Amino acid sequence: MEKIRPLLAEVPATLLVPLWARAEEQKRSDPLVRDPRSAEILRALDFDFSRFSGGWMSQLGCCIRTVILDREVQRFLDAHPGSTVINLGCGLDTRVSRLSGYTCWYDLDLPEVIALRSHFFTETEQRHMIASSVLDSGWMERIMAPGPVLIIAEGLFMYFSEEEVTSLLDALARYFPKAVLLVEMLAPLLVGRNRMHDVVKNASFKWTLSDSRDFSRLNSRLHYDCEWSYFDMARRRWRYLRLIHGIGWVRRNMNNRIVRLHFE
């Protein structure tokens, strides 16, 4: 079968990193996440994934964030039957196939990403794909969400400026006034220093927050619930970093995290 070549610009091309990370994890006898679908998709793409081979921190971090998000999304769905999930910047994420209990699931990304995604996923009455920039609020009018809403922003906000993040949050608050958000936050040390990253070299890291409670500064209706540090999972696999991850400066500046927020 002829392989599919992903024709993506710098930021959209970063979707290949978590796909590779999850596929690579399937080679382990004790994978953090079981996702054979990602391995199947990877094999169907005409791309030299060996360029990521040295990125052990990204590989581990992507799998940890997958575990955290899978767990927290499923908890939300179990606690709120009839929910709608909106997955912003979905890339080639396979979560929609792994979890259950939602009424509707919307995967949203740029048109070229959705075109690629359409090779591997089909829409159903419950599963939908929207081709749009996240920053174009017109897509929000297409969401039918009579019940609770959960919004996922994984590997996304770090590529926006603070002004863009604020504008997006304002629009989300208007359209989904009681939504819960699960947001990945970048390690502050990497902002403006993407060349320090072990895999992502071309797409610029523009923004993060050192203190997740500062989200309320961006939107007064947005409230912090809790967060989960990547360093607190799979500690034996963090190699030398496990020796220093407890140091306050290291945790604040070198550590990605998943933050749970809600509008009220």
Rank of each mutant, 00 (worst) to 15 (best):
Leu88Val: 07
Cys90Leu: 04
Cys90Gly: 08
Asp93Ile: 10
Val96Asn: 12
Val96Glu: 13
Ser100Lys: 14
Tyr102Gln: 02
Cys104Trp: 05
Tyr106Lys: 04
Asp107Leu: 06
Asp107Gly: 02
Asp107Phe: 03
Pro111Ala: 04
Leu116Val: 00
Ser118His: 10
Ser118Lys: 13
Thr122Leu: 08
Glu123Cys: 08
Glu123Val: 08
Gln126Asn: 06
Arg127His: 11
Ala131Glu: 09
Ser133Glu: 13
Val134Thr: 14
Leu135Gln: 11
Ser137Ile: 05
Ser137Met: 12
Gly138Pro: 11
Trp139Glu: 13
Ile143Pro: 02
Met144Trp: 10
Ala145Thr: 07
Gly147Leu: 05
Gly147Tyr: 04
Val149Phe: 06
Ile152Ser: 01
Ile152Tyr: 01
Ala153Trp: 02
Glu154Lys: 08
Leu156Glu: 05
Leu156Ala: 12
Met158Cys: 09
Tyr159Met: 08
Glu162Gly: 06
Glu162Ala: 13
Glu163Gly: 14
Thr166Lys: 15
Ser167His: 09
Ser167Phe: 00
Leu172Val: 00
Arg174Gln: 09
Phe176Asp: 00
Pro177Val: 00
Lys178Arg: 15
Leu181Met: 14
Glu184Lys: 05
Leu190Asp: 01
Val191Trp: 10
Gly192Asn: 06
Asp198Arg: 11
Val200Asn: 05
Asn202Leu: 11
Asn202His: 12
Ser204Asn: 13
